[in-house]
Simulated scan of single mutants.
Amino acid sequence: MTPEQRLAELGLTLPEVVPPLAAYVPAVRTGDLVYTSGQVPLVEGKLPLVGKVGAELTVDEGREMARICALNALAALKSEVGDLGRIVRIVKAVVFVASDPGFTGQPQVANGASELLAEVLGEAGRHARSAVGVASLPLDAPVEVELIAEVS
């Protein structure tokens, strides 16, 4: 089953690539690696939720925002390589979580992105990961995800 077929089976549609919010490009390929820029959970140009996880958002809401970020990152990858089937492996995911100062559940929030990648890409979606709590993110986004992928 192709990644696009898995997306359809999950009831998901790959969105249009989120336009850059500043002076950068959504993804860059060098050799067999593609690096995505950080992707926030924009849906049709808007953030469904804003604020810090552990204050304005629950862990489950943060996890859902991380899923959206991962979907946006897959769109950025596809824009660079043309077909998600060319992804050999997601090498690394970095998940930034805008966190209340006492919040320590960043790994649980990051699981939203990691689980989506595994659901869509199977074994190729399993990856190394960092889950990092930060004071704030662009547009008051609760989560931002960047990926490094090996491609054929």
Rank of each mutant, 00 (worst) to 15 (best):
P3L: 08
Q5E: 15
Q5Y: 02
Q5S: 08
A8I: 11
G11L: 06
L12Y: 03
T13F: 08
L14K: 01
L14C: 03
L14M: 07
L14D: 01
P15C: 06
P15W: 03
V18K: 06
V18F: 04
P20L: 09
L21N: 09
L21P: 01
A22L: 13
A22Y: 13
A23P: 04
A23H: 14
V25W: 07
V25R: 15
P26H: 11
P26C: 12
A27G: 03
V28P: 04
V28E: 13
R29A: 11
T30V: 15
T30R: 15
G31C: 08
D32P: 10
V34R: 08
T36C: 12
T36A: 04
T36H: 06
G38R: 14
Q39P: 05
Q39S: 13
V43H: 06
E44Q: 13
G45N: 11
K46S: 13
P48Q: 10
V50Q: 11
G51Q: 04
G51Y: 03
E56A: 12
L57K: 05
T58Y: 11
V59P: 01
D60Y: 11
D60V: 14
E64P: 00
E64Y: 07
E64A: 15
M65N: 12
M65C: 15
R67H: 12
I68W: 03
I68M: 12
A70S: 10
L71R: 08
N72F: 11
A73E: 05
L74I: 07
L74Q: 07
L74T: 04
L74H: 06
A76L: 12
A76V: 03
K78C: 03
K78T: 04
S79H: 08
S79N: 12
D83E: 13
L84N: 00
R86G: 00
V88C: 01
V88L: 07
I90F: 05
V91T: 13
K92H: 15
V94F: 02
V94L: 07
V95I: 15
F96S: 03
A98D: 01
F103N: 06
T104H: 14
T104K: 14
G105V: 01
Q106G: 08
Q106R: 04
Q106P: 00
Q106D: 00
A110D: 00
N111P: 00
N111Y: 12
G112I: 05
G112V: 02
S114Y: 06
E115I: 14
E115C: 01
E119L: 14
E119A: 14
V120Y: 02
L121I: 09
G122H: 06
G122V: 07
E123L: 15
E123S: 14
E123T: 15
A124R: 15
A124E: 11
G125V: 02
G125L: 04
H127T: 08
H127A: 09
A128K: 12
R129D: 02
A131H: 05
V132A: 03
G133K: 14
L137D: 01
L137H: 06
L139A: 15
A141C: 11
P142C: 05
P142M: 10
V143A: 05
V143P: 02
V143R: 06
E146L: 11
E146C: 14
I148H: 01
V151Y: 02
V151R: 02
S152K: 13
S152I: 12
